[in-house]
Design a protein around this nucleic acid. Structure first.
Length: 433
RNA sequence: GUGACCGUAGCUCAAUCGGCAGAGCUCUGGAUUGUGGCUCCAGCGGUUGUGGGUUCAAGCCCCAUCGGUCACCCCA
């Protein structure tokens, strides 16, 4: 047993000082998604492993190397299901859509999830932890490219509303099951004669996931990538039209975007539109998303188009700090009750005042532990409280309290910043102050 | 999974050639027995990540291990 417990590698405490950033993200996300007609959904953190392996894809790193999977306790027959902490949000939402018959509702069904923990057993680094939190949207049951553009527009508005800039939207279409296989053949034809000069990773990619050949960062392979056939030139007519419409609608939404023919995304279920929003300064993707028109069928539902994205709280928070966006500060208390003297009667009176103020929804703190008057005043000051409510022998006897304005400077004489307020008039006084 | 750098008080960091583990901040108390920010004093706080090794002597050198940071892979 360890002598001192520590959070697990890649698992982070989200401390009070960090919370204002997360609150800003949450507040903005709720405002913007609901503006666009999305409704909140929360799905379980744990699902059957196969839900992810069948959708995200065998062969992807997420499924093959990074899932937290375990056997459940066996049932009466001794069978135990293999479960996983979810590595991403889309599969669970689509499962819920099918399970609850949401295909019966008016389509599309537009859903969002917020601050949902996701788990991937990666090696931690900047903007990457093993338990991370995502804000995501999913629009199910509609293939209209207006939905694609709307979602990207929503996302862009979300970032701008928080005060971020220096972001760009990367956009591509990776075709569908009609045209992508043909493109992949052409890509492999192109790469085959060059293969033995490619980097080791690309040798593997060629067989495992040829689309990712375009993702290679090795300098030596950049020239080959530049000369490779582009999927945009091989899209079938429906995909081409869909992509053209997405771009047109994005213009109507005033969303600036950059076409990136090398953007392919790592999850198997994507079709047609794929997008990321990338920080220009850190080069890191704050979110990733795309259309997944075949996903519901994989899960045994009828063919249902869908599109979604997941955005990482940790990365957004990092970017807010990098861009020096200050979240709204936490509100300090309005009143800080200070009591002079250590009699039980005195402390009872102090506790009673604190209770009355809090019941009246006035944010109130008090000194604890019978600290000295000076010490309590110091704490009142550092708490950021607007007023100190002083109660001592005189006040107790006279049925009043002394209210001291802490925002007034120390230089002011006591009389100038203190006022006697009758006990039963205190709430009224503070509410009007 | 691969690689680089780094682990000293709650936080930020000192410690000369290997020679008594320190400071600032925070917190607590005090500087006229009931009055805030500045100042001053004091206190709390450490098995120098852990385990070995070299040495008269290790925070410092060596090995291992754990952890952190960053990059790659991958991805939010």
């Amino acid at each position: 047993m360890p002598e001192h417990y520590r959070a697990l590698q890649g698992f982070k405490d989200i401390l009070p000082d960090e919370q204002p950033y997360w609150r800003l993200i949450e507040k903005t996300a709720i405002e913007v998604t609901e503006l666009y007609g999305y409704r909140r959904i929360e799905t379980p953190t744990v699902e059957e492993t196969s839900l992810f392996s069948r959708t995200t894809g065998e062969g992807t790193d997420i499924v093959d190397k990074e899932m937290y999977s375990f056997n459940d306790r066996p049932d009466k027959e001794g069978r135990s299901a293999n479960l996983s902490l979810r590595p991403e949000g889309t599969a669970g939402v689509v499962r819920a859509y099918l399970e609850h018959g949401m295909f019966q509702l008016a389509q599309p069904v537009k859903l969002y999830y917020l601050r949902e923990p996701m788990f991937r057993h990666d090696k931690p680094q900047a903007g990457r932890v093993r338990e991370h939190h995502q804000f995501g949207c999913e629009a199910l049951g509609e293939s209209d490219p207006a939905v694609d553009a709307e979602m990207i527009g929503l996302l862009f508005q979300f970032y701008i509303s928080m005060g971020l800039s220096n972001l760009h939207v990367s956009l591509n279409s990776i075709g569908d099951r009609n045209c992508r296989p043909q493109y992949l053949e052409r890509l492999k034809e192109y790469y085959l004669p060059l293969l033995d000069t490619c980097c080791d990773d690309c040798q593997v990619r060629f067989y495992k996931n040829p689309l990712r050949l375009l993702d290679c960062k090795e300098p030596q392979d950049q020239a080959r990538i530049a000369g490779a056939p582009k999927i945009a030139d091989y899209l079938c007519e429906p995909c081409r039209e869909h992509f053209a419409a997405v771009k047109r609608y994005l213009d109507l939404y005033d969303v600036p975007y950059q076409l990136d023919p090398l953007l392919v995304r790592g999850l198997d279920y994507y079709t047609r539109t794929v997008f990321e929003v990338i920080s220009t300064t850190s080069k890191q993707a704050l979110n990733g998303g795309g259309r997944y028109d075949g996903l519901a069928e994989i899960l045994g539902g009828k063919s249902t188009p869908g599109i979604g994205f997941g955005a990482g709280f940790e990365r957004i928070s990092l970017e807010l700090k990098r861009q020096k966006v200050a979240p709204p500060p936490e509100a300090g208390p309005c009143a800080y009750v200070v009591y002079f003297g250590k009699s039980a009667e005195m402390k009872d009176a102090a506790v009673r005042i604190v209770a009355e103020l809090r019941h009246a929804a006035i944010k109130t703190e008090m000194g604890y532990g019978d600290r000295s008057a000076k010490s309590q005043m110091k704490q009142a000051n550092t708490s950021g409280s607007a007023y100190a409510i002083l109660i001592g022998e005189d006040e107790l006897a006279g049925g009043y309290v002394t209210v001291q304005d802490l925002r007034a400077g120390k230089e002011l004489a006591l009389e100038a910043k203190q006022i006697k307020v009758q006990r039963d008039a205190l709430i009224d006084y503070l509410q009007k102050a």
